Computed example of a mutant assay.
Amino acid sequence: MTTYAVHHRTIYRYRQPVKLGQHQLLFRPRDSYDQRLLDCRLVIRPEPAEIRWIHDVSGNCLTLVDFDTVSDRLEFDTTIELDHTPENTPDFRIEDYAREHPFAYADSELPDLEPYMRRHHPDDVAVEEWLAKFVAADGRRPTGQLLMTLNEAIAEGFSYQRRTMRGTQTPAETLELQQGTCRDFALLMMEAARALGFAARFITGYVYVADRDGPARLGGGSTHAWCSIYVPGSGWVEFDPTNGIVGNRDLIRVGVARTPQQAIPLWGSYWGEPEDDLGMEVSVNVKTERAPPADQPAATSSTRR
């Protein structure tokens, strides 16, 4: 078991004082068998008029913040601590009927899975053309092997490019550019899986990067995104195509959603002129109390974020 502490700070700056509107945060992880929330703290400057929490349509915990003031600066400072149980290797205990692809989900599960099987960009033929490299039109292939191949193909075949612009590239854009952010790669993996008949969900959270975060607090980090795919017998299996991770190792899951647009870590509004927005600064640091065995040196990570 590993204990993680995540510090996430976002600062908005404005050219002149603006009236702050409602803001929404998605930062509180949901407790599960593989991660248990120990502490959760939120500091907001200037002080809000009201803070309340709700569960969204996917069961994620949303924090809604209302203001009754004007300011030229807005800061959100969040800290979470949790116990995390990593999976060393994916445990593909797949039901007999689903061990080879293609297969059909069980009738009892299909109504709940159908929304996650619908593609975001059904008219993009680029995804099918890319899939043809890995999937024969008339062939069968072990399900777990197929999904791991797609995950690794994105990790090895595309260049990670951090982008400050909001939004997510279409899969066709990612395939054409051969580069993208973690959100772009997650959506491409989801679209590829859905094109093959799988149910897939978008995940937002954090990734621990040993050679970036280490024991000291460092800046320059960001939130992370990956996806999960429903495999009968194994449930929702996590795939991080940015880093080639299968399972939850080094991944801190905060929220899950049907689309990337439903899993934005922080968004809000203000009353003012468009040019009043001077941009934002984001700093994320993930620390861990996990220690290597005494007879082994500490390992470094080449994880991309």
Rank of each mutant, 00 (worst) to 15 (best):
P102K: 05
L20P: 04
Y14Q: 02
T10P: 11
R52I: 04
Y160Q: 10
G214C: 08
T69S: 14
D213Y: 07
S302Q: 13
K19L: 10
P274M: 12
V70I: 07
E81W: 01
V254E: 04
P171I: 02
F202K: 04
T242W: 03
A172V: 03
L64F: 05
G272W: 12
V57I: 15
M165E: 15
R119M: 15
G272F: 12
R28P: 00
G144N: 06
R45V: 14
P115D: 04
L82Q: 09
I44G: 08
M148D: 05
R290E: 14
V6W: 11
P115E: 05
P122H: 05
I51W: 09
Y14D: 01
G167D: 05
Y230W: 14
R118E: 14
E238Q: 08
Y105R: 09
V256C: 05
L218N: 15
E156K: 15
H84V: 03
V57P: 03
I264M: 12
A172W: 09
H84T: 00
T69Q: 12
F198N: 00
S32L: 10
A172P: 03
D277T: 00
T223E: 00
A104Q: 11
T78L: 02
D91F: 02
T143N: 11
P232G: 10
E152D: 13
G139F: 03
D277P: 01
F202S: 03
H84M: 01
D124E: 15
G59C: 04
C61G: 08
Y116L: 09
D56G: 03
A172T: 11
F185P: 01
D295M: 11
G59Y: 07
A225Q: 06
L25T: 03
D276V: 10
V18S: 01
M1P: 09
Y97N: 07
R73D: 08
T242C: 10
F198D: 03
W236E: 11
G167T: 03
D91T: 06
V286C: 10
I264D: 06
L62Y: 00
R73H: 14
W130C: 07
G255H: 07
L187W: 02
L146G: 11
A199S: 06
L131K: 05
E273R: 13
N60S: 10
D211Q: 11
T2W: 12
R28G: 01
F92Q: 09
Y97G: 06
